[in-house]
Design a protein around this nucleic acid. Structure first.
Lengths: 266, 266
DNA sequence: CGTATCATTGACGTCGGTCAATTCGTGTGG
DNA sequence: CCACACGAATTGACCGACGTCAATGATACG
């Protein structure tokens, strides 16, 4: 099974060298002159509309994706329909990966906006990775990173109050977007999420998310209007969110160095 | 900084070939005749008492550990002391790893019982891994697995009721222990956790955990007495916990095959 | 024995959920 | 151009799951 969206194979149109997310994803591990390695491994591109299921919990997926453009949410469902959003995937994120690649997917991926995906064949992936240690380390970096974000969220959902959770969530999103697009034009970003999405990410109902957003607005910390998130008072918000320095550093660490290199220098 | 427990360097005492967790941890990736690779990389063993901090949130750790014996919990703290346990680490688990190995630890590790750790040097770790692709893939498998367990817990904490959470937690623990020690002697395991630990793992108070344990006991599903967990009705419990087949499979997947091999066979 | 830790239980309070009504914006068809 | 439908946001009234506080046992330990 794979995403039903149309696949384009013309790599010429989007050579990896021009890829907008090159440095936010796995490919960052490759120097310019080795980019061809991934370019030849890549299957092609898929373009999906907003509000579409890329894969569903239970699917036997045969691809892996890098998000090139657009927003996606990853979610797990209980049998009666209760939903937990486990991650908001942004450009550069690598999705569809699981510890065991031959098992059915343990979560779903759903587009929030029109999306462009870079597609890799699943069955050859580990063999491919095995031959390229730098890619392997970079992959591990990314997977470990997603694990950390997940546990940050767990702390938030398990031990923070509703206002704190919402504040935390919005700040995290804000910095993740900013990392990818560091234009200093105001402190606003486009955020294509409904209050129900936010609730499903935080273990709250949309009604209560609404109340918390009102509170944050009245306290002049943050504003969400018309799918636009504006951070009015970053410090005040960080305060409510329980964001410490280290959390901030970790969020803004794109794995630049990235560890296998910075480690060498030590 | 490293764990203050005494370090023994006499590898002769515990050669890797006799290691009890050999097949539950990274080392599983190595065939017998290559075990020496890890044996020479290993720093030594550390033995810690119960109720001791192996490393703390904020520490600059210079080691990495495989749990050889004993139980450990990993936790994150908010500034005011609220605590979220993010993982119960059992023999075979690899702890201390983070996406960025040179950053201060984003969580703490605390022993629940006396513990024996297999110690690796942190600063040489990635260089070491880079040279051994099979280890690298196995590491990625483990890290990805921890991520999945974390997101399973997130679903539970975010979207399940208190009874469901407790049921889920106990079942997960039970199967994780059984995977390592598949003796069929009754359906009991030793579980060195207080009700407060369980609460901190599930976003509940110990008082409420107590009430839920009572309910589960009265419903004849499970019993916790004197640090011993007894599963009375596995199916009934799985029902309450919202455990599906796939979840079970995933829990019982030690990465045997493990994917890079089973993938080849496909 | 005195102290400490954990388990257990009851009384009561509150945070966040449920239900429902209203508004608003957008798109769509007549 | 207007009528209508639809989804999302917003708000109020009310409720219940879980937290808080406190008392009581039970067990271990020095």
């Amino acid at each position: 099974m794979h995403c039903p969206c149309p696949l384009t194979r013309n790599h010429e149109v989007n050579p990896c060298a021009n890829c907008p997310v090159r440095h936010w994803t796995i490919c960052h591990a490759l120097p310019n002159d080795e980019l061809a390695i991934l370019e030849s491994f890549k299957t092609g591109d898929r373009v999906c509309e907003a509000d579409q299921e890329i894969y569903s919990q239970g699917d036997d997926l045969d691809e892996l994706y890098t998000v090139v453009e657009g927003w996606i949410y990853l979610a797990k469902l209980l049998e009666d329909g209760r939903r937990q959003i486990s991650q908001i995937a942004l450009p550069g994120d690598f999705i569809g990966y699981q510890a065991n690649l031959v098992r059915p997917m343990d979560h779903s991926a759903h587009t929030l906006t029109p999306v462009r995906l870079c597609v890799f064949p699943r069955d050859k992936f580990l063999d491919f990775i095995r031959e390229h240690p730098e890619l392997s380390l970079r992959l591990t970096w990314m997977i470990a990173n997603y694990g950390e974000l997940g546990r940050d969220r767990l702390l938030s959902v398990g031990r923070q109050t509703a206002v704190e959770r919402v504040a935390h969530f919005l700040l995290e999103l804000y910095y993740r977007v900013r990392l990818r697009d560091p234009e200093p034009l105001g402190s606003s970003i486009k955020m294509p999420l409904t209050q129900e999405h936010i609730g499903d990410a935080l273990g709250l109902t949309s009604v209560h998310v609404n109340r918390m957003l009102r509170e944050l607005r009245e306290r002049k910390l943050v504003q969400v209007v018309d799918q636009t998130l504006t951070i009015i008072d970053p410090d005040g918000l960080a305060d409510v969110a329980g964001f410490d320095e280290d959390m901030m550093d970790r969020l803004l660490d794109g794995g630049e160095g990235f560890e296998c290199r910075s480690q060498r220098i030590e």
